[in-house]
């Protein structure tokens, strides 16, 4: 019997604290699998955000940093500039990267910082109790949009890949999802591609992962994945929004 599926070495063998059905766990595994496959365990440095996924700094088995809310791309900049041959990535939620950390995100991309941002879009601030995030959909009910997000009050949801694409410093931007196995496989490919492009030194890379939040969406884990497919994907189309070929490589 040959093992065809087992825990990646880059992931510590401890239980996740995430809610049942929360797909953070899947994305953590994908990142760890890719780092194993690239044999980059000893050169991987991850920067954890503030949010549900802050504890990625415990789950990853290699050296990690924990950054102030929204500041992970700046922390990663400092790390990568000191250690240019390391694989440096941040793992951030939508509140972390697309609200308070927008300045850091945009300018890391504008500088072509050779880092990778794993951007988890689950349309809410989850850890703090399900508030509206920049990516909350129109009409979506959250604890701070009880009547549903109203563009007249809170504006329109932010499309991060589309926002960063015009910045020449960004070399690879892709939006993927983990709501079913086919997409999980595609998500892993995108993460691998982003890391490869980073290590080739082409510039800033980001993978936006549509992810579920059963608890704060008030849905069962399976219903949440269906909701994601039917509501998030139409507004956040999956695909590659920047690839090095466009950067004249």
């Amino acid at each position: 019997m040959k093992k065809v599926f087992t825990r990646p070495e880059s992931l510590k063998d401890i239980p996740f604290h995430y809610c049942p059905g929360c797909t953070h766990g899947i994305v953590h595994r994908l990142v760890a699998e890719v780092i194993d496959e690239m044999d980059m365990y000893e050169r991987a440095l991850g920067v954890a955000p503030v949010g549900c996924s802050v504890f990625i700094y415990n789950y990853m088995d290699f050296d990690m940093y924990q950054a102030a809310h929204g500041r992970a791309p700046a922390v990663a900049t400092g790390i990568k500039r000191v250690l240019p041959d390391r694989l440096v990535f941040t793992y951030q939620g939508d509140g972390d990267a697309a609200a308070i950390g927008t300045g850091e995100l945009v300018h890391a991309a504008a500088r072509g910082e050779k880092i990778t941002v794993i951007f988890i879009n689950n349309a809410v601030y989850a850890m703090t109790g399900g508030q509206m995030a920049p990516t909350t959909l129109l009409g979506q009910k959250t604890t701070t949009t009880p009547a549903g997000r109203d563009a007249g009050i809170n504006g329109m949801p932010v499309k991060v890949c589309e926002m960063l694409a015009p910045l020449d410093g960004s070399a690879y931007l892709a939006r993927v999802s983990v709501h079913n196995p086919k997409n999980i496989v595609a998500a892993k490919k995108a993460i691998r591609k982003a890391f490869d492009i980073q290590m080739r030194g082409d510039g800033f890379t980001l993978v936006e992962v549509l992810s579920s939040c059963p608890t704060n969406w008030g849905l069962s884990p399976l219903e949440a994945l269906k909701w994601l497919e039917q509501n998030m994907i139409p507004y956040y189309p999956l695909g590659e929004y920047k690839t090095p070929a466009e950067v004249g490589k």
Binding site: K3, V4, F5, F16, Y18, G21, H24, I184
Partner: peptide, 15 residues
């Protein structure tokens, strides 16, 4: 196993 968010499932196959 691919879909499991908590690494509960291990899979092995006979060569």
């Amino acid at each position: 196993a691919l879909m499991c968010p908590d690494l509960v499932i291990e899979v092995a196959r006979e060569e």
